[in-house]
Write a protein that binds this DNA or RNA. Structure first.
Lengths: 196, 196
DNA sequence: CTATCTCTAGAACCTTGTTCTAGAACTTTG
DNA sequence: CAAAGTTCTAGAACAAGGTTCTAGAGATAG
């Protein structure tokens, strides 16, 4: 691999890592171009060369974090055999990510609106689509067998992740929530909403 | 009522209305102090006199919009007799608000993060607490009677509004979702997750 | 009537995202 | 190997938007 290209990749990675670190340490308030540049040890010019804008950097970081989260969820789902255990796997993977990699989770939730910025929507959609498709495909036979209720895809998705996402958002923002207890109780409740 | 105080109230109201109008027309991008001031016909000094900061204005508007939404939900819940119809009433009221008063709903969802800004968190919590308490109180006898599952309050809340909130967020951002159809299908699914 | 207090006004300021120009480092080609 | 071209890095200058400040107009109280 060409040296130049590798250095570029390295710079991109350093900027993304620095961005996550700054966001975790200073919150949305302190999350600024200049802070990220200082933390990364890279220049402002490089940031704009690689990401085009600060939103571009944020979108790239969002994409990276979200991809990791979805990959963990898809992997957990792949290990499940029954739809009920699949639901439990998804919830556990999601909440596990939130608990163990809270910097990533915090960034995802803080910039949820970014997923809809027109400029970057298609990049994010392109990352999500295949992963969501794998989940849909996993569910399909169980729907066909009559074990899982047959709803429009977005609704199934909402029932599955809506409560978990909202719960995570609150926990990340300091609400008094017992996450392990929630991880025990929620899956069967969500499963009840999906059972045919 | 003193004239001066009434004029102050009027100015506050004009600023809040202008803020909602600007946000609806120009989106989060164009939602700036200067734009709000221009739209309202009031001066910048007045804005800072009454709200302290731009975030203060946003928090006040969020509080007002959220209070209206919650009041509609609580009112709808009050008219319901069975827990199942209560769930349907809540979902219908929420989605109705989103469909009919989308400027308000859009602002609520766009500034969801604002609910956690330390500076304004307690104001918002003070608005929410009594309304949430009314919902909890409505549910209590049904839980006692064994008709509704007994979970920690936040979890019940998540199961009830999580899917609806997430669905609304996507619809507001242009996702291809059939809202009336969702309003028909969701309530019984959510009810299934809450049924004991 | 005058003193004071609240509200209104908008210019000046400062932080933060973006652009611009220059130059360094690597790759390719004659 | 040398020179041209390309990509990447650098940081100063710029622009836009949030905040502060000083001043003055209008209402209320003594």
């Amino acid at each position: 691999m060409p040296v130049k290209q590798r250095r570029g990749e390295e710079t991109r990675r350093r900027l993304l890592d620095a961005a996550l670190a700054v966001h975790a340490a200073a919150g949305t308030e302190g999350f600024t171009v200049h802070a990220v540049v200082a933390e990364s040890g890279v220049s402002l010019g490089s940031l704009y060369h690689h990401f085009g804008s600060f939103d571009g950097l944020a979108a790239a970081l969002y994409t990276r974090c979200m991809a990791e989260l979805l990959d963990e969820i898809v992997a957990a789902l792949g290990r499940a055999r029954t739809p009920r255990s699949g639901v439990r796997a998804v919830v556990t993977a999601y909440l596990g990510h939130v608990a163990e990699r809270s910097a990533s989770a915090r960034f995802i939730h803080a910039s949820a609106y970014a997923a809809y910025l027109p400029a970057h929507a298609e990049t994010i959609a392109a990352m999500k689509a295949p992963r969501m498709a794998r989940m849909t495909a996993w569910l399909a036979p169980h729907i066909a067998a009559g074990a899982v209720v047959d709803l429009p895809d977005p609704l199934t998705e909402m029932l599955l992740i809506g409560p978990v996402a909202e719960l995570s958002r609150r926990w990340l923002n300091g609400a008094d929530i017992d996450l392990p207890r929630a991880a025990k109780l929620l899956p069967d409740r969500i499963w009840a909403s999906l059972q045919a």
